[in-house]
Write a protein that binds this DNA or RNA. Structure first.
Length: 434
RNA sequence: UGGGGCGUGGUCCAAUUGGUAGGACACUGCACUGUUAAUGCAGACGGUGGAGGUUCGAAUCCUCCCGCCCCAGCCA
């Protein structure tokens, strides 16, 4: 019995007889010679099968339909003519399920439109490019968790169901919650993290969040994953350092551990290699001046638009951190800068190459009186925020945190033009199938 | 939610100024012992998003509806 191996490790079995379990990705033929290409989830590998040498396998493979599942055994041989450098000389084929002739696999090895691919996302993800993106996603998540753990942060997840808005302003998905009660899907775990930070010191949560905003851009999903650290006694500077450490660790882990996948995506790895700390930093004040110098109609007090972010980030070869925004354009829980109270001690991190904001955070208001004033100013329901205000009544401390948008970060790492490719099943405005 | 664009066989696209809706790919068969989204030949299937209107005649022009894409706003 030949050992069962994955295509990923086929190169280490040169000259040996092995068994692959997977699918027929594509097949070409030249007379009595077949060139089946197999796919097993770890990669694709070309096979060779001749009628003369393996008549039974030849007959099994001949006219086998694309994406039919099969188990094949053969000898791995190096061959410069084969994509990947090795090919499998097939001696035995077991067809697990043959796709019927009249009902072929819908995804061709040709160009397709966006709508068709999204409608067939459950099949589209089998394509090498899509599989590579999902592997990079897994690597980035793995790296992010490792990094946070290595920095002494404890994972304390926030609830998905919440009784009210975290920030009050953005649109929430409303769901019915037992009997007549209403609940909302969380748009951020931050408020709950502030509680767990007071309990455990340095914490983070990592999970999906939901935004019901009608945003139809290449940078938006209605369900996306966010990694949010929060630390007691931490200040703005601590979070900027943590943030650049996290992002660079994610990028460098992908560069180191997923080079083949980046190659599949034709990603310019030299651009990723440059992403090491420290990241450039810029005061909001200076960012406005920079925009004006570049002919943008920015004025102090405005938030930046997508094009503004591209202008700012394109000046650097790594993400840029913009900090100390006007308090008026930031969330109610942002701590004011004691030097200049009109500024918030917050920051955004903008990815290079026009990928926009991937991180936002800062120091939180620690004074009970100020927070209560802010809650009232923003017309937030005081009773729903009672527990949040409690954190300022019972041993309040300076604390800070941020949120990292996972998909935007991965879209940038992968160089994809749209965020929808970097999550297995994207939830978009007007699309929830499959 | 505003602005712009697009809806044609399973897929990707053509169709001059309103005049018989077509090609490629995919699928099936045949040929070929080194193919790289193979190629060549043959075959079968099958379509103008929907409803009205103008016209001798509409994929094409008009109205409404539906769907999708891009941009902006909002945000990560």
């Amino acid at each position: 019995m030949a050992p069962i191996i994955s295509i990923e490790e086929a190169g280490r079995h040169s000259g040996e007889s092995v068994t692959l379990r997977g699918w027929l990705y594509n097949q070409r033929d030249a007379g009595k010679l077949l060139f089946p290409i197999f796919r097993d989830g770890t990669g694709i590998m070309q096979g060779v099968c001749s009628l003369k040498e393996s008549p039974a396998a030849y007959e099994a493979l001949k006219n086998l339909t694309q994406e039919s599942s099969c188990i094949v055994t053969g000898t791995v041989r190096p061959d410069a003519r084969a994509p990947g450098g090795h090919e499998l000389h097939v001696s035995e084929v077991q067809v697990v399920q043959r796709i019927a002739d009249g009902d072929p696999y819908p995804i061709q090895l040709k160009e397709h439109g966006t709508d068709f691919l999204l409608e067939n996302r459950h099949l589209w993800m089998r394509a090498p490019r899509q599989a590579a993106i999902l592997r990079i996603r897994a690597e980035a998540i793995h790296a992010a968790r490792n990094f946070m753990d290595s920095q002494g942060y404890t994972l304390t997840d926030s609830p998905m169901f919440t009784p009210s808005a975290c920030e009050g302003t953005t649109t929430l998905f409303e769901v019915s919650y037992i009997d007549d009660e209403k609940a909302y899907l969380t748009q951020s775990g931050q408020l709950y993290l502030e509680a767990t930070a007071a309990a455990l010191g340095k914490v983070y949560c990592f999970g999906p969040v939901f935004r019901a905003e009608k945003s139809k851009t290449r940078r938006h999903l209605t369900e996306f994953w966010m990694l949010e650290p929060e630390a007691a006694y931490a200040h703005l500077e601590d979070m900027m350092v943590l943030g650049e450490g996290l992002v660079s660790h994610m990028v460098q882990s992908v560069v180191k551990n997923r080079p083949r996948e980046l190659e599949t995506l034709s990603r310019d790895v030299t651009k990723l290699a440059a992403v090491v700390p420290p990241f450039p930093r810029m005061l909001y004040d200076d960012a406005v001046v920079t925009l004006q110098k570049n002919g943008k109609a920015a004025k102090w007090g405005d938030d930046f638009g997508g094009e503004d972010e591209t202008v700012l980030s394109s000046q650097f070869d790594r993400p840029v951190i913009i900090h100390r925004y006007p308090a008026s354009i930031k969330a109610f829980y942002m701590e004011p800068d004691p030097q200049r109270p009109e500024l918030a001690l917050g920051f955004d991190m903008l990815a290079p190459e026009g990928y926009g904001e991937i991180m936002g955070g800062g120091e939180r208001v620690s004074s009970y009186d100020l927070l209560l004033k802010r809650v009232r100013e923003h017309n937030l329901p005081e009773d729903a925020f009672k527990w949040y205000l409690d954190l300022r009544r019972y041993g309040s401390v300076p604390h800070a945190g941020f949120g990292l948008g996972l998909e935007r970060t991965i879209a940038w790492i992968c160089g994809t033009s749209h965020i929808r490719e970097v999550i297995p099943f994207p939830r978009l405005l007007y699309r929830i199938y499959p």
